[in-house]
Simulated assay, not measured.
Amino acid sequence: MIRRSFLMVLALVAAAPMAALAQQPLKVVATTGMIADAARQVGGDLVEVKGLMGPGVDPHSYRQTRSDIVAMTRADLVLWHGLYLEAQMEEFFHDLARKRAVVAVAEAIDKSKLRAHDDYADKYDPHVWMTPELWRDVVVEVQRALTELRPEAAETFAANTARHLAELDRLAAYAKEALTKVPENNRVLVTAHDAFGYFGRSYGFEVMGIQGISTQSEAGLNRIGELVDILVERKISAVFVESSVSDRSVRALIEGAAAKGHEVTVGGELFSDAMGEEGTYEGTYLGMLDHNITVIAGALGAEVPARGMNGQLSAGF
């Protein structure tokens, strides 16, 4: 009897660390801020998320640092975008996937929904976060990955996902409402690189990037000259800079148009490949898109709420 009780105590003591371990948050590493936000929205208190690329960081050219490698090799789950966004890191992710749970979340999107990549054959435009309708699929893939690792929390992950998808649906409705107020002849979006193709397709805007889909493509003098001619001929009065791309080429457009007697101004700074500062509304996916939608619509002639859909934008339009 005494021996049995002793063995039971030993079993309980041995089980205690395992039970405590099961309750610890999953350690998740995400490459972009947008994916990190999705993991936090879905995982809630059950995840501890580290994002590798902060505000202003260009994922097209990013290479993993030594501290990134340490974080990813110690993580329970690594989430990366895929679709050739993190072009400099792909080989590392494929190697890491042999040892850890590694998921390219945007690869789950049905290819029929994607735009062909102008610069690389058999690849697709990776900027799927530019519309909430496409980003929903990424959020659902994040839910799947977390649930696979911690199935006992499936109901919590499902409830969190449903709440966040409802927020994305509201954001999509705001986008359509605000952007349809832009006069049709003003629906031209000129930016530093071609990150807004899905945005243009969804909301009926003609999109022109100085560089291609990747910021690694060259912005040649011929391309800048072509765009200057378009700005002048079509009397386009606003162009946009991006938070993660140098504004040098955009400034060259403005100067080129001015040399031909046409005034072009900067309509605002957009978040293209990275979100805003951590701890701000713009540092969330909802805030990032709310900012872009509100700034684009307002600069091109629509009446928009001064501080966006939720009244939380840090600077009124």
Results as ranks from 00 to 15, higher is better:
residue 108 A to S: 15
residue 193 H to L: 02
residue 52 L to V: 12
residue 294 T to Q: 12
residue 99 K to I: 12
residue 191 T to P: 03
residue 173 A to M: 11
residue 274 A to W: 15
residue 79 L to W: 01
residue 31 T to F: 05
residue 21 L to S: 13
residue 79 L to V: 10
residue 15 A to Q: 13
residue 14 A to Q: 12
residue 4 R to H: 11
residue 125 D to N: 07
residue 194 D to K: 01
residue 174 Y to I: 10
residue 285 Y to T: 05
residue 85 L to N: 07
residue 136 R to Y: 02
residue 180 T to W: 08
residue 231 L to A: 01
residue 281 Y to W: 15
residue 160 N to K: 10
residue 217 S to R: 03
residue 234 R to F: 05
residue 146 L to V: 06
residue 304 V to A: 09
residue 191 T to H: 09
residue 100 R to F: 03
residue 4 R to D: 15
residue 185 N to T: 08
residue 191 T to A: 09
residue 128 V to D: 01
residue 25 P to T: 08
residue 147 T to M: 10
residue 176 K to M: 08
residue 203 Y to G: 03
residue 148 E to R: 13
residue 86 E to G: 03
residue 154 A to M: 07
residue 3 R to N: 10
residue 159 A to F: 14
residue 152 E to F: 13
residue 237 S to T: 05
residue 18 M to K: 09
residue 41 Q to N: 04
residue 45 D to N: 06
residue 141 E to Q: 13
residue 35 I to L: 01
residue 84 Y to L: 14
residue 149 L to Y: 01
residue 282 E to A: 03
residue 275 M to P: 06
residue 61 S to L: 14
residue 136 R to T: 06
residue 173 A to H: 11
residue 90 E to A: 09
residue 111 K to G: 01
residue 253 L to Y: 07
residue 274 A to P: 11
residue 243 S to G: 06
residue 276 G to L: 09
residue 221 L to K: 00
residue 231 L to N: 09
residue 125 D to L: 01
residue 62 Y to S: 01
residue 255 E to R: 06
residue 247 D to K: 08
residue 206 E to F: 04
residue 226 E to Y: 11
residue 272 S to W: 05
residue 107 E to I: 00
residue 32 T to G: 00
residue 34 M to E: 08
residue 284 T to E: 02
residue 182 V to L: 02
residue 142 V to S: 07
residue 192 A to T: 05
residue 79 L to R: 05
residue 253 L to E: 03
residue 317 F to Q: 02
